[in-house]
Nucleic acid binder design. Structure first.
Length: 536
RNA sequence: GGCGCCAUCGUCUAGUGGUUAGGACAGGUGGUUCUCAGCCAUCAGACCGGGGUUCGACUCCCCGUGGCGCUACCA
């Protein structure tokens, strides 16, 4: 009897441990019939991974990173990447609110193979559209006596919880309704009461081998019986996820570390349902700069915000990849294909990482410099149009050529697309002469001479420059002319070049002066020089 | 409170008993240069604390401490 009980427990225990390595059982007398190793299972099933997104209306960086890791894993194994909407929280979920999440992922280039918008063999891909499935399995669990109806009221539960806390005990469900007979439960349901369904937790010492964190253990006897179906018939997260992972043939559940502990409840649900659990891997979380849980309070955490701030999707993907994973080499810059080749779960960090903005900014600048001028111009267009510098319909012909020249000049000083309008405005609009004059008084090079001397010099420059025809208004002749003027004045080059720069752009930093003048154009340059030279 | 996970420069991290503890971003300095940016060079900067184990610990073990997570009819 005793033996039988032990063996029974042991067997169940084993079932819950399918993912543990056989080595952990070394010395066991009777070897398992078919010892299953992680690697054996990995190759025996087609790889299907998923991102389970809450329809919160926005795509969170954490969600994006998890999606990326899943996608990379799927692609390198020739598997499928599935997008599922976990919208069982009726309060927060609206039909439109999933749109933001989809947009964010898509903008990053993290395209899914199956999802709510494109269907697939195991849909629907919204949990709210699968309620009957959960309810059916829940009824089976009650039938099999692995779950039971619980009629305890939320108030009652809350009171017990507080009481336990006050007495320093762990708050967990007492299991009172376990004792209810099936007949009583049925009668009360007929009478109109709306119970929840709770899973009967087996008080086992459990463990599983996490693909990124290694072996993790937990004593299930410390858990209370969890609700799997709420009184309104909607499943709880842990339960719905188990049913879906199974029904959708998910082979590897790769998700955030906030789900590590939940995994044990889920393993018990798999066991109760008679489903073989998938592999699990939990990624360490992304944190705020103060090491607190990441939140919208502390700056941008949504993909859409980064897009609006002029970040490139490839920079974000690259940075996200490096936040929690490393290639084991000194390489920092990765294309998506490069990531796909290098990514590995066992190189993923198991300690939390701060989402570092400055490194992202550097990467963004790097990718901007890498882009062809044509492509960079195309991507910058929406920002320029937003600032009213160019019409919203894409320019063509000479207009486009000029725009490309301008963007080309600013390319290596651009860290985000968002900065573009501010940097290039002066190519399109004359600056305020008064503002230029102010700068002439404070700039460290211009300061070498009095405002009157400067105005005279600018007027002379204008006169000299006027001699250049439109056709020879290019960097080299411009350089020769202005160098000649500086020599004539007996000034060091910067003492003249800087005032010219300030006069033409009202900015202390611009691309190289002569290329800049070329792009600003003959008439605008002369007009601006004269405006400041003749300013009061 | 209980349980789980984690702990190397400011940040992301490499490192698996013996290393000048390496790289990248950010910061400092210098060079290139008409400014800025870029590029190049260079400097500074870390093993949470305490006990063990060991000839020898960043590395292994234990205890603290700290962070994060879970402990819901949220996901």
């Amino acid at each position: 009897m005793q033996d039988h009980h032990t063996e029974d427990q042991d067997r169940r225990h084993e079932h819950l441990h399918l993912s543990s390595l056989p080595a952990a059982r070394a010395g066991e007398e009777t070897p398992r019939k078919t010892p299953v190793t992680d690697s054996a299972r990995n190759t025996s099933k087609p790889v299907r991974v998923r991102i389970a997104a809450s329809p919160t209306g926005k795509c969170h960086v954490g969600t994006a990173r998890t999606a990326l890791y899943n996608l990379l894993f799927a692609r390198q194994r020739g598997g499928k990447f599935i997008l599922r909407i976990d919208d069982t929280d009726v309060q927060r979920s609206t039909t439109e609110s999933e749109q933001g999440v989809l947009e964010g992922l898509r903008w990053l280039g993290l395209e899914w193979d199956e999802g709510p918008d494109k269907g697939g063999p195991w849909g629907p891909y919204r949990q709210s559209e699968r309620l009957q499935l959960y309810q059916r399995h829940a009824a089976e669990l009650v039938e099999k006596d692995r779950a039971y109806y619980c009629f305890c009221s939320p108030e009652e539960l809350e009171r017990e919880r507080k009481e336990a806390l006050a007495n320093g005990r762990m708050p967990r469900y007492s299991g009172r309704c376990r004792a209810l007979s099936r007949a009583d439960a049925e009668a009360r349901r007929q009478a109109g009461e709306r119970p929840v369904v709770r899973l009967k937790i087996e008080p086992l010492t459990m463990s599983f081998t996490d693909l990124v964190k290694g072996r993790i253990e937990l004593d299930a006897s410390l858990m209370g019986d969890p609700v799997i179906l709420k009184s309104d018939g909607v499943p709880t997260y842990s339960y719905a996820t188990v049913v879906d992972e199974h029904e959708m043939r998910i082979s590897h559940v790769l998700r955030g570390a906030d789900h590590t502990t939940n995994t044990f409840v889920q393993l018990q649900i798999y066991e109760a349902l008679g489903f073989e659990p998938p592999e699990f891997g939990h990624f360490a979380l992304l944190l705020n700069p103060d090491r607190s849980k990441i939140s919208k309070r502390t700056g941008a955490v949504f993909i859409g915000e980064f897009r609006d701030e002029g970040y490139l999707p490839e920079a974000i993907v690259n940075h996200l990849a490096l936040c929690g994973w490393n290639p084991g080499t000194d390489q920092e810059v990765f294309s998506f294909d490069g990531l796909q080749a290098a990514f590995a779960l066992d190189q993923c960090s198991s300690s939390n990482a701060i989402f570092d903005r400055s490194k992202l900014l550097w990467l963004n600048g790097h990718y901007i410099r890498q882009l062809g001028v044509e492509e960079l111009t195309r991507r910058t267009l929406p920002f320029l149009a937003g600032a009213g510098l160019v019409p919203s319909e894409p320019p063509a012909g000479p207009e486009l050529e000029r725009l490309k020249a301008i963007i080309g000049l600013e390319q290596e000083r651009l860290k985000t697309l968002y900065e573009a309008p501010e940097l290039v405005t002066f190519f399109f609009r004359d600056p305020d002469p008064a503002a230029c004059l102010e700068l002439l008084k404070t700039d460290r090079f211009a300061r070498k001479h009095t405002p009157d001397e400067l105005k005279r010099a600018l007027a002379e420059c204008a006169a000299a420059l006027r001699e250049l025809e439109d056709s020879s208004w290019t960097a080299l002749p411009l350089k020769e002319t202005l160098e000649g003027e500086a020599a004539k004045l007996g000034w060091k080059p910067p003492e003249l070049f800087m005032p010219v720069r300030l006069t033409v752009s009202a900015r202390q930093a611009t691309p190289p002066l002569f290329e800049t003048l070329e792009c600003v154009g003959r008439s605008a340059t002369l007009r601006r020089l004269l405006a400041v030279a003749g300013a009061p």
